[in-house]
Design a protein around this nucleic acid. Structure first.
Length: 491
RNA sequence: GGUCUCGUGGCCGAGUGGCUAGGCACCGGUCUGCAAAACCGGCUACAGCGGUUCGAAUCCGCUCGAGACCUCCA
């Protein structure tokens, strides 16, 4: 029933035809944020990327179950809140806040940011702390099967043992021998048999703020357990797509594969999708690098490197204008270009609403629609999709300018094209802005002034006409003269 | 050091063995009393050097440059 969809699978490093495990159903798991700080541009990327994936499949008629976790345990130890770390968390510690208060605060702000970006809420948003039992259960299974061992109250995954039965490192292209040589010396390593073993359950140090009882002692789950446990719980032992940022490929997703395979005896994920990073001056924007700009700062323009505020939809457009597997380099220039480009798209849609149908049609909307689907079917190529939509904008403008003709059917087709791709699939929100039909007092006053300007123009009183225009412009009213009058909008 | 990715016009960013997206900026023209908007047109690039090929920016090799992962990170 559907056209072929190609997805680049990190596991095989090539594009593969998507075949759902269950017809017309999609199981999608994406690694969500660790909520210990404000969300930054980097968080927007996977959220928007997989929002597109989920929206597209939904549009095609799939029943999508989209699971995106909230990591609210594991990284919130006392020591991480120490010097040079997140100020709010540090403050929270100083003020003796519960870790859950910190988690709550940043979960809320993450949600606010996502809503602003018009990222749809996933079907399920499970939290690590709400699934301690499931994680412990999975650890027990792995222990039982002999792929893990206990050491000083912690449980470690036995990579070497696992590697005898299954290939460890297949996702990231690593070999166990190489890992041995290249793993750095870390604290607690002496507890492990091998440096590349990773924790499934960690014995809680006294300063650790979050811990749970277990048969191995007070502790907390390892950093990778939650995703294995929660994806299995909500999507089953096998599911279609697992997504996340490229930086998670190793060790996080590699560990996930190992854990799930060890516990279940087979792999879970059919297609691994990874979005690339956002860079700033060619370097990754990241929390650990301290060069990140939060979404809130973008929305308000409050960061020192920002020349202006950028609206959530500008950010969304900026991200979608690049393919998800390439890096996107941040700059004011690029963002401003995105802002103007997005504006052009919106103006095209507004113009379309005002178009009057004629008797004949000289444009082929169906061809554009086909190209739009083709773009998405080729590994979710949003930049090409957007390019095609600009072709449709050009059609609209040409019709409005009288260079092309459109009948009622064509106009309806165009409207449905924009509605499907711009609103439903790309997820752009069109804010209702004050316009010429505004019924409030200021709108009426502007109409009145512009009508006076028309009278002045009819009397060839250019001085008065220009004065009205200039003063309204100074107030932020953009005036466009048309054949039969005027249009205006607030800047 | 190991593994991997990338290098496109003024900028951002697609893509492909031959027909060479799109946006922003810029320059002409149409329209307009002038402007703005819109429309039409122009600007025609693929790091360097070799090789494969009838033909490569697209495939291969080397060089240079940039980056990612190997440690929490989206």
């Amino acid at each position: 029933m559907h056209d072929k969809i190609l997805i680049y699978n990190t596991l095989t490093r090539k594009k593969e035809e998507f075949k759902p495990l269950n017809p017309n159903h999609l199981g999608l798991y994406v690694c969500g944020p660790t909520v210990y700080g404000d969300a930054h541009l980097g968080h927007a990327r996977p959220a928007i990327t997989f929002d597109l994936v989920s929206r597209y499949f939904t549009h095609l008629g799939y029943k999508v179950r989209y699971v995106r976790n909230i990591t609210d345990v594991g990284h919130l130890s006392d020591e991480i809140a120490g010097e040079g770390e997140d100020k709010i968390l540090k403050k929270a510690r100083l003020e003796q806040l519960e870790p859950m208060e910190v988690v709550h605060q940043f979960t809320e702000s993450y949600h606010d940011n996502m809503r602003a970006l018009n990222v749809k809420s996933p079907s399920i948003e499970p939290r690590a702390t709400g699934h301690i039992m499931e994680q412990q259960e999975m650890i027990r299974t792995i222990l039982k099967k002999g792929y893990a061992y206990e050491s000083k109250g912690s449980i470690y995954f036995d990579v070497l043992k696992y590697n005898e039965d299954y290939p460890y490192g297949k996702l990231s292209g690593r070999k166990v021998e190489d890992l041995l040589e290249n793993t750095r010396i870390l604290d607690g390593q002496s507890e492990k048999r091998n440096s590349y073993d990773f924790a499934l359950w960690k014995n809680a140090a006294p300063e650790h703020l979050m811990h749970w009882p277990s048969e191995w002692g007070e502790g907390f789950p390892g950093w990778h357990m939650e995703c294995s446990a929660m994806s299995t719980k909500y999507l089953g032992e096998k599911f279609d797509i697992h997504g996340g940022g490229m930086d998670l490929i190793f060790p996080h997703h590699e560990a996930e594969i190992a854990q799930s395979t060890a516990a279940l005896g087979h792999e879970s994920v059919q297609y691994w999708m990874h979005n690339n990073m956002i860079t700033i001056n060619g370097q990754k924007m990241g929390k650990s690098l301290g060069n990140f700009i939060t979404l809130e700062e973008f929305f308000t323009g409050s960061h020192e490197t920002l020349e202006q505020a950028y609206s959530p939809m500008t950010i969304r457009f900026f991200i979608l204008q690049a393919h998800y597997r390439g890096t996107v380099d941040f700059s004011n220039e690029a963002l401003q270009a995105a802002e103007k480009g997005f504006d052009r798209l919106l103006k095209g849609i507004e113009t379309l609403d005002k178009l009057k149908a004629g008797n004949e049609s000289t444009v082929d909307v169906e061809a554009v629609r086909k190209k739009c689907y083709a773009a998405l079917n080729d590994d979710f190529n949003s930049p090409i999709l957007i390019a095609n939509l600009f072709e449709a904008v050009k059609m609209v403008n040409s019709i409005a300018a009288g260079n092309e003709k459109a009948n009622e059917a064509t106009i309806t087709e165009l409207k449905s094209l924009f509605n499907d791709f711009v609103i439903d699939i790309l997820g752009f929100k069109i804010e209702a802005e004050a316009s010429g039909n505004s019924s409030d007092i200021s709108g009426n006053l502007i109409d009145m002034m512009l009508n006076m300007r028309i009278e002045a123009k009819q009397n060839k009183d250019w001085a008065t006409a220009d004065k009205i225009r200039n003063e309204l412009t100074a107030m932020g009213v953009l005036i466009k003269d048309t054949k039969d009058g005027f249009e205006w909008e607030m800047q």
